[in-house]
Nucleic acid binder design. Structure first.
Lengths: 216, 216
DNA sequence: TAGATTGTTAATCGATTAACAATC
DNA sequence: TAGATTGTTAATCGATTAACAATC
């Protein structure tokens, strides 16, 4: 059996976390791991781990468990990390610059090949080894290097127009840090919205809720 | 009826998005909205919206819908945004600085009252109107101003120790940008993990998946 | 072989959607 | 009053967990 055709987003979102834990184990020299042990470490159930992995194939061995290195590599491949798809960053303000400098793109499946900004104050500056280019140069770079992903760190209002432009130029996925909801409306385009404000407000609810409990 | 005692995390995570869309409507002068219209705009079902809101109370009116301003304010209150809990940022490297400068803390429920860093190169610099302090000063500030939330932009290895320290000093919630999984292990502590690498890898999977489809 | 642990099917649980009576 | 739309209960769907036969 094994190998489902479409994988639910819940499963996909757990893969990077498996990858991370297995990477740590690999570094610390662990050779094998059972679903039971891994579940314990990751605060999951063994059932869930086996179900998740079996969406993609049978990577374990009865009576033994999983080989850490093999499973780590398989998950890397499932995620497509070795493909290192070319990506561009659009918007090199505070957040854009920080993302460019902070992220280890190579180990998360991409290669940052260009940085663009609309402001003349920023164009020409260097960010993470790349010279910030004018927005007008996006066409050229896209034709030359065919980036597949755009990282958007631009104002909300600019987002729909920039996204449309990107899609025209062959972009297939967005890592969206803007306040604009990109998830909707496009067919065959992948979007990961990182809505930092939403995340912070969720925390706001939770902390206030904890404080209420304290009062009672 | 209405007003459940514990709200599922799925519902809570949708609240900031409702808040955002209602805020936009308020700005554009929309007075009333039905669950049906709002569902259309937000790509949800009317049922879900009514179910979500009714966890907290009956904010609508049969035959009319919801008053935008009233509902916006109610959701602000549910989230606890007006409380503006004091928060500290720990780690003022690329990402920490960007977060401090970029976020509108006031409108997301907090007030940033202190920035801390372990590096002498950064201590003394100004970030978003605050002077970066040494880590050793965290005690004092916590006693004085009792921040409730810590924003962690520090290396993975430093995280567990810093988190423990924070909890000792009365911190009740973490906005966690580190690679370390904070969610587990603490009782009565709220955690929002922002695992940027995980998010990017999820996008990696999705884009590679789209490209496979294209080949077939 | 006996023990361990997977892969997989079945049962449970929770979240989403549909339906409709209540009511503005 | 009639029409619209909520609040809420019931039905459906999907995801998680449990169970167990297969097998290393």
């Amino acid at each position: 059996m094994a190998k489902k055709s479409t994988i639910s987003i819940s499963v996909i979102k757990r893969l990077p976390r498996y990858h991370r834990y297995l990477g740590d184990m690999l570094k610390s020299g662990t050779r094998r791991i059972s679903s039971r042990e891994l579940a314990h470490i990751m605060s999951l159930t063994a059932s869930q781990i086996r179900q998740d992995l079996n969406c993609f194939g049978g990577f374990g061995q009865q009576g033994y468990g999983y080989n850490v290195e093999y499973l780590y590599n398989e998950i890397s491949n499932i995620l497509g990390i070795p493909n290192r798809l070319p990506a561009v960053l659009i918007g090199a303000g505070n957040l854009g610059k920080a993302i460019a400098r902070q992220m280890d793109f190579g180990n998360t499946g991409f290669q940052l090949i260009g940085v663009f900004d609309q402001s003349p104050d920023i164009v020409g500056k260097e960010v993470s080894g790349l010279t910030v280019k004018e927005m007008s140069e996006l066409d050229k770079i896209c034709k030359e290097k065919q980036p597949k992903v755009a990282i958007l760190c631009i104002p909300k209002e600019a987002t729909p127009a920039v996204a449309d432009k990107c899609i025209e130029l062959g972009i297939m996925g967005f890592w969206n840090f803007t306040q604009y909801d990109l998830a909707q409306g496009y067919d065959n385009i992948a979007v990961e919205n990182v809505h930092l404000s939403d995340s912070l407000m969720t925390l706001c609810y939770q902390v206030n809720d904890l404080m209420k409990d304290g009062e009672e």
